[in-house]
Nucleic acid binder design. Structure first.
Lengths: 166, 166, 166, 166
DNA sequence: TTTT
DNA sequence: TTTT
C-alpha cells in the first residue's frame, strides 16, 4: 500500500543463544528470542508485579547474521528495529498455525548491541548493502538482494518447512 | 526487566470497520485490523509485486475507544503506537493457540487519524488519563487505571473467553 | 559511540514547496519545512490552544530528492524518519550560529507520502542504494556513497556557506 | 495540526552529570546532554572515522526529574523518547538565537536506564500522572498538568530568562 | 479485509 | 562532555 509504515522497536535481552540456520541455497537466517518486561506495583495488594513479553526476531541478512554469530549470546542486551510479519505454517499434526515475528531485513532494519559483555563491544549495524564509504562497522554489507527479496516477498516453503514456531 | 522497550509504530488503513466489545464490567475494548504493505518490482521478471501485512490492534482505553467508535471506519488511515503482546488462547476444539497483537494501553500509546474522510478530521490522541489542562482533543481521558492494569497484567479469562483470534 | 541510536519520526505537512539545491559537484540536497502541531483545551480559560513546531528536514540522497521534486509540494503530508544533526554556521555578520536539522541520509532513513494530493499517489521510499530486486518504487537507488558520506561526515564549507538557516 | 507526530528516540550516554533547576514556582526541570555517535571506515584512506552528535534533552516532569537526580550521572546510558522543540532566546548581547531540544513532557515521553552502573539498576519510566495501579517504578506520577501545559505551550520568560542554550 |  |  502506498503510504504505510510497519516498524517495531525493541530493547531487550536475549533469552538464549542465537540460533543460526541456513536455507538450502546457503543463506543464513538468525533467530533471536528477546524478552522485554514491565514492572508495576499492584495498587490493591501492593505487591510488585512483572510481566515479560517474549519476541521472536528473525534476521535475513548475511552480515547481520555474522554479527549475531560473533557477538550475541544469551543475556545480551540489544536494540533492534524491524517489521512485523505474520507467517502461516502447518504443524506435524497438519494443524494450521500462525506465528508473528519481528523481521530484520533490507533497509530500515537495525541491530545495536547495548552492553559490553560481548567481546566486540557495542556497535550499531544496518542491513543495507552499501559497501561505499562505510566500512564493516557502521553499515555491514548485506546479503545479495535476491536473498533479501526472497525473504521479504515470499519465503519459500522448502526453506521454511522445518521452521518450528516460537 | 529493567531497561526494556517494546514499541510498535504502524501507519496503515483499516481493513474493516472497528469492532468494539465490552468486558463484563463494562469497559470497552476496540479491535482494529490494519493493513500495511510494501511494493517492489521483481528484478528478474520485472513484474510489480506487493505484499500486505495485516495487524491486529487492540485498544484498552475508554476515551480511545470512543474516538475509534466516532471517527474510524473501514479504509481510514491511522498512525498508531503501541506494544507487542502475544496471548495464548484455546479454540473450540481445545487446541492451544497464540495470537500476537499490537496493544494500545496506558502511557506511550497513541492513535492519530491521518486522513480527512472521517467527519471529525484528523487528530491525535494519547491514552493517558490526565484530564488536567489538556482537553478532549489532545489527551483524552482514559479508562480507570484498574481497567488498564487488568488489561496489561492479566486479561482475565472471563473477559476473553469469547475472543476469536485474528 | 558503540551502541547508540539517533532517530526522529515525524508526520506532518510541508509548510512550503521543497527547495532543491545542488552541491558544486552536482549532488542534490532537498530541504523541507515540516509542521507538526498539538492542540489542547486550556483547563482554566477553556479556550482551544494550538502549538505548531516547525522542523527543518534535509535530504542527502539523489533518489529521494527526485521523489521530493516530483511529488511533494506545499501542504503535502509525509512520514519521515531520519536523524538529528546540529550544524554550526556563520552568518553574514560573522556571528556563529547553530541549526538543528532532521537529516535523511543513508540507511534507516525513510520518506513516505501520506496523502493523495500528489500526482503520483502515496508511496514509501528508503534511501538505500540497493538496486537489486527492489525497483524504483520501494527502495530507490541512492546517491553514490561517497556523496552520502561527505554529507554525513563533513558537509564542506564550500557547499554550505550559502546555507541560510531555518 | 490534526494528524501529526513529533517523536525523537535516542540511545546514548550522558556527557556530564544532569543539571536540575527549578522554576520560580518550584517545579524541577532537568537538562541532560546526551551523545550519540556513528563510526565508519573511510573507503579511500581506510581510516576509522567517528562522528558524535550531542543532544540537549529537557525534562519537564517532577517524577522523571527525581529519577534523573537519583540514578543518572555522567556516562550513564539511556533510552529516551520525547519530542523536538525549537526555542527562541536572546543572549546577553541582545542577539536572538534558537535552540532545538528534545523535550520529555506529558504522555508519550519515556526515559529508560540501560546500564547497571546506577545504584538503582535499569528501569523504565513514563511521564504520565496516572497514579492508579502502577507504582513508582513503572509509571511515576508526573508534575501537575498545569506545570506540564505551561512547559509545553509557553515556557514563560521569567522561568527561562536565565536559560543558557546548549 | 485496506490502500495505491 | 559520553561511549567503544
Amino acid at each position: 500500500m502506498a503510504g504505510s509504515v510497519n516498524k517495531v522497536i525493541l530493547v531487550g535481552n536475549l533469552g538464549k543463544d542465537p540460533e543460526i540456520r541456513r536455507t538450502q541455497d546457503g543463506r543464513p537466517i538468525a533467530n533471536l528470542s528477546i524478552a522485554t518486561s514491565e514492572t508495576w506495583r499492584d495498587k490493591g495488594t501492593g505487591e510488585r508485579k512483572e510481566k515479560t513479553e517474549w519476541h521472536r526476531v528473525v534476521i535475513f541478512s548475511e552480515p547481520l547474521c555474522k554479527i549475531v554469530e560473533q557477538y550475541l549470546k544469551k543475556g545480551a542486551k540489544v536494540y533492534i528495529e524491524g517489521a512485523l510479519q505474520t507467517r502461516k505454517w502447518t504443524d506435524q499434526a497438519g494443524v494450521e498455525k500462525y506465528s508473528t515475528e519481528v523481521v530484520l531485513q533490507g533497509f530500515n532494519s537495525t541491530l545495536t548491541m547495548l552492553d559490553g559483555r560481548s567481546g566486540g563491544g557495542g556497535g550499531s549495524f544496518g542491513s543495507d548493502d552499501s559497501g561505499g564509504d562505510f566500512g564493516t562497522e557502521r553499515a555491514v554489507s548485506s546479503a545479495p538482494r535476491r536473498a533479501v527479496a526472497a525473504g521479504a516477498g515470499g519465503r519459500s516453503n522448502s526453506d521454511m518447512d522445518d521452521d518450528i514456531p516460537f
